[in-house]
Computed example of a mutant assay.
Amino acid sequence: MEKDWKRLGNFVRAARSARGLNQDELAELAGVSRATLQVIERGVGFTRIPASVFRLENTFDWGPGVVQDILAGGDPPTGERSSSASQPPMRERAFADGMPLRIAQELTEGEVVDTAVLDLSREGSGSSLVMILKRDDAENIDPEQLRRDLEVWKRAKRALHGITTESDDQ
């Protein structure tokens, strides 16, 4: 059966517009290039369905298999999937994509209180340690508890900074 790439392109464009996103914003959310998104929206055909199309399917919260249905002449769901109530919002999911599930869930729940980035690089390495202090109940926090949490946070940052600045021969 022939795949209807123009039909998919029209649905992608309509879903993007309905969410008030421009092509750059959707491309960033989905983790695809703007050029790829433009090709998909124009309805240019592919010999096989590229991974970028499935990233868009996930970003729109269409559910697995919807892209194949659209290409075969079907319609995407008119609302979000029933399981989407437990899913973080689209922008947060895009940020957490590719991370282990536990980390992705932690990053998309609660409120960030502070962050730190420590350079781990030795010559030839571009690694860094990213630390995030977050609270699940930031709205109802006791100021004294927040002060204690921030003290622990400061000690942890100092300790980790000390480790990252130690020489390799210790």
Rank of each mutant, 00 (worst) to 15 (best):
L8P: 06
G9N: 02
G9L: 08
G9S: 02
N10M: 05
R13M: 09
A14Q: 04
S17W: 11
A18D: 05
A18Y: 01
G20R: 00
G20C: 07
L21Q: 04
N22Y: 01
Q23M: 02
D24W: 13
D24K: 13
E28P: 04
L29M: 09
A35G: 06
L37Y: 03
Q38P: 06
I40R: 03
R42K: 11
G43D: 09
G45W: 12
P50G: 07
S52P: 06
V53A: 02
V53H: 00
F54T: 00
E57I: 01
V67C: 12
D69C: 04
I70M: 00
G74M: 12
P76L: 05
P76F: 09
P77G: 09
P77Q: 12
S84A: 12
A85V: 00
S86W: 15
P88C: 10
E92Y: 05
F95P: 05
M99H: 09
M99L: 15
L101Y: 14
I103M: 15
Q105W: 13
E109H: 12
G110R: 11
V113K: 12
D114S: 09
D114Y: 12
D114R: 10
D114F: 14
T115A: 05
T115G: 01
V117M: 09
D119E: 02
D119K: 01
S121L: 01
G124A: 00
G124P: 02
S125E: 11
G126N: 10
G126K: 11
K134A: 14
R135K: 08
D136Y: 13
E139S: 06
N140M: 12
P143K: 14
P143V: 13
R147I: 14
D149T: 03
L150S: 03
W153A: 07
W153F: 05
W153N: 02
K154E: 13
R158T: 04
L160N: 03
T164G: 04
S167Q: 12
Q170E: 13
